[in-house]
């Protein structure tokens, strides 16, 4: 586990060795996780990785079959009443009474709460004020999702659980939701976010935890997780007259961090662990040979790339236990024999 950013304070969420079983199947197999005040941790994983099973335990909706789960210092399942008015939950799928209006739905939810924020403010935060008198049955999918969010933040929770909060939202609503989540976080709200959108995790998360096979297989900042994955350089070489030059990988200069090089038609793709040095070497090589590099593209790994590589790796063999920093930097595939296609 990476060092916690605020070790001085007690964690808002603390999970140690948590397990959850369904009959003979163990969906969560010993998970450790800490989330500190004001932190936003994104839980990632493929379908069936155990995210929902884990989050349900932390939300207090299901008991842990092993290990220890603490939210705000209490067992969220057995001491539910001690934490329930301090957490907000946005489930992946939850229903509304479709014959109530938006305003009636919010009023009902607020009336059950110990300390709700003003109802108008919650509706305003998710831009549903103009739909207040519309029956929930008439809302679009995205509007329902925003109403979900309005209910989750209505109690001014100290800990907020968001399960796929932007599914079904148009890009503009998504951005607005992100702004709202950021503002809540800036105000000190602790957030545990579950999402399939890796750009969402990249945009919002202080830390990500990637689950696979019921375990957290990697955890850290987006930069940490991504750093373990190689960068890529892509280019197409032309001569001074603009004619395509087919590059054989053997022709390339020595590259310090090169993992493999592939050529697809005229496009060369290099995977490297030392992006800056190798890019410099490639540029110097091109200048020396008076090549023009078309569609030059050099970039660090994305979270998506890291995630897919990790999913592939953990699906292939038994999931490593705990965090997987030991296998950082191991390429997913062996060195490919470069091939030239004219």
């Amino acid at each position: 586990m990476s060092p916690s950013p605020k070790p001085a304070t007690a964690p808002m969420i603390s999970v140690r060795g948590a397990r959850r079983r369904y009959g003979g199947f163990e969906a969560v197999r010993g998970v450790d996780l800490e989330v500190h005040r004001g932190e936003l941790v994104a839980l990632l994983g493929t379908n069936g990785a155990g995210k929902t099973s884990l989050v349900e335990m932390i939300e207090g909706l299901a008991p842990a079959d092993g290990g220890e789960v603490r939210v705000l210092g209490h067992d969220p399942y057995r001491e539910r009443r001690r934490v329930i008015d301090r957490v907000g939950v946005m489930l992946q799928e939850a229903g509304f009474s479709s014959d109530l209006t938006v305003a009636e739905t919010v009023r009902m939810w607020a009336s059950t709460m110990t300390s709700p924020r003003p109802q108008a403010e919650a509706l305003d935060a998710v831009a549903l004020t103009h739909r207040a008198d519309v029956r929930v049955a008439s809302l679009s999918g995205g509007e329902r999702r925003r109403l979900d969010l309005a209910l989750a933040i209505l109690g001014e929770p100290e800990v907020l659980f968001l399960d796929e909060p932007t599914t079904g939202l148009d890009p503009e609503s998504r951005q607005a939701t992100w702004r709202l989540v950021r503002s809540l976080q800036a105000a000190g709200t602790t957030v545990l976010l579950t999402t399939h959108y890796l750009d969402e995790a990249e945009a919002l998360a202080d830390r990500v935890a990637i689950m696979s096979g019921g375990r957290i297989v990697r955890e850290g900042t987006v930069a940490d997780v991504v750093a373990a994955e190689p960068a890529t350089i892509e280019l197409e070489a032309r001569d001074a007259a603009g004619r395509t030059v087919v590059v054989d990988p053997e022709d390339l200069p020595p590259l310090a961090g090169l993992l493999d090089a592939t050529v697809d038609r005229e496009r060369v793709r290099l995977r490297t662990e030392r992006l800056q040095e190798d890019l410099e070497a490639v540029l110097a090589w091109a200048r020396r040979l008076e090549l023009r590099l078309h569609h030059l593209d050099a970039r660090s790994a994305s979270l998506e790339q890291a995630f897919l590589a990790l999913a592939e790796r953990t699906a292939a063999g038994p999931a490593p236990s705990g965090t997987a920093s030991s296998d950082a930097g191991t390429p997913a595939a062996g060195p490919n024999r470069p091939e030239v296609v004219a």
């Binding site: 301090r86 924020r117 831009a127 925003r146 109690g155 702004r179 950021r182 800036a186 105000a187 000190g188």
Partner: peptide, 26 residues
């Protein structure tokens, strides 16, 4: 949506107000 996200300052004040209204954690 042309959302008006909770501004940090308001939200912060209110988060504290909410915590105060809730009283002690025990």
């Amino acid at each position: 949506m042309s959302a008006a996200p909770v501004t940090p300052s308001t939200a912060s004040t209110e988060a504290h107000a909410g915590a105060a209204r809730r009283g002690t954690a025990s």
